[in-house]
Amino acid sequence: MTATLGCVTLSLADRLTDLTLSLHEGEVTAICGPNGAGKSTLLSCLGGLVAADGGLVTLGGRLMRNVPVQERARSIGYLPQSPEIAWDVSVEVLVSLGRLPWGDAGAKIGRDAIEEAIAAMDLGALRNRRVSRLSGGERARALMARVLATCPAWLLADEPLANLDLRHAIALMRRFREQAGKGRGVVLVLHDLATAMNFADRVIVLDRGRLAADGEPAHALRSEVIEQVWGCKAGWLGERGMRALSLG
């Protein structure tokens, strides 16, 4: 498969067949699909974490495999599924790990980026709190601040809403939208189709490694696609931006 991030073309490993995508900065792109469809594989390939043998991923016009590791790490922020924090560090130290690709956590530029990320995620009051004392929503914000501290052009997150309640999920989605508004390319693996419908600019539907649909949410997630890919009869209710899925 081949995918492009903004100017990123990505091509993928065995899980994904013949996939050609071009992703754009300044957009929230949601990757949806049933379990085992290859969503996480696609995201890893886009992030340059899995070599796409037989496929090509390009970043800024260059093949991903030719992009130096350090440069890739600076341009693509990646939030894995069920992120781990091994040591009970403070929020500020956690966020500062985002500067590792730049190696400047101690310098002025690095400090500024860390402060900006902390401010963007409203973590000012929690900066000295240890991560074990954070609630689920605060933890998700802190982890996102860590990715933002890198100042990446691309923000990739694998099911960032898992384990978040409704309020925190929506708050986090708004923040992803904000980041897209600042020109970043945001690519999210989302399980909840309504979230994808309401918050994404574009939805990519994968089915067993194939591209089942790609386009505006209302188009990519229309009832026929849902029935074909998930095998459920479903229809959308409500207004644009506040849609709900009704299962028949």
Binding site: P80, I85, G98
Partner: peptide, 14 residues
């Protein structure tokens, strides 16, 4: 330090 975030995130950090 990068490994604090797990192996996958550490690799994404270079």
């Amino acid at each position: 330090d990068a490994l604090t975030l797990g192996e996958v995130a550490a690799r994404s950090l270079g």
